[in-house]
């Protein structure tokens, strides 16, 4: 039991302390994230929680000028609880 808890704590520490490269962009599920100057990820937008739309959206990245540029992109389908 102790070993499991230690492993879990180590995994959390790894995730929490893993620095990112400033300016890097990525999708984490439906969330667009950009790396801050202090090497922490910043949640920019959650594509599953956009307002004033009935469309489903997903996080998408495209390569532009050698860098990943991420944003929310509409896709086929309709939100079940549109707002």
């Amino acid at each position: 039991m102790c070993r499991v808890m230690l492993l879990a704590a180590a995994a959390i520490m790894l995730v929490a302390c893993n620095p990112c490269k400033p300016g890097t962009q990525r999708c984490t599920g439906s969330i667009v994230e950009i790396c801050r100057p202090d090497k922490k990820w910043h949640k920019v937008q959650d594509c599953s929680k956009l307002k004033r739309t009935k469309k489903l959206h997903k996080c998408t990245c495209e390569l532009k000028d050698g860098q990943n540029k991420c944003y929310c992109c509409p896709q086929e389908g309709v939100k079940s609880n549109a707002n």
């Binding site: 950009i34 920019v44 956009l50 307002k51 959206h57 540029k69 944003y71 929310c72 509409p74």
Partner: peptide
């Protein structure tokens, strides 16, 4: 960094009818 955030939001709203 702030410009990157704004570009991401700007791309979303120009490609979609949604608000962030």
């Amino acid at each position: 960094f702030a410009a990157s955030v704004l570009e991401s939001i700007g791309t979303t709203i120009t490609k979609s009818d949604a608000a962030v």
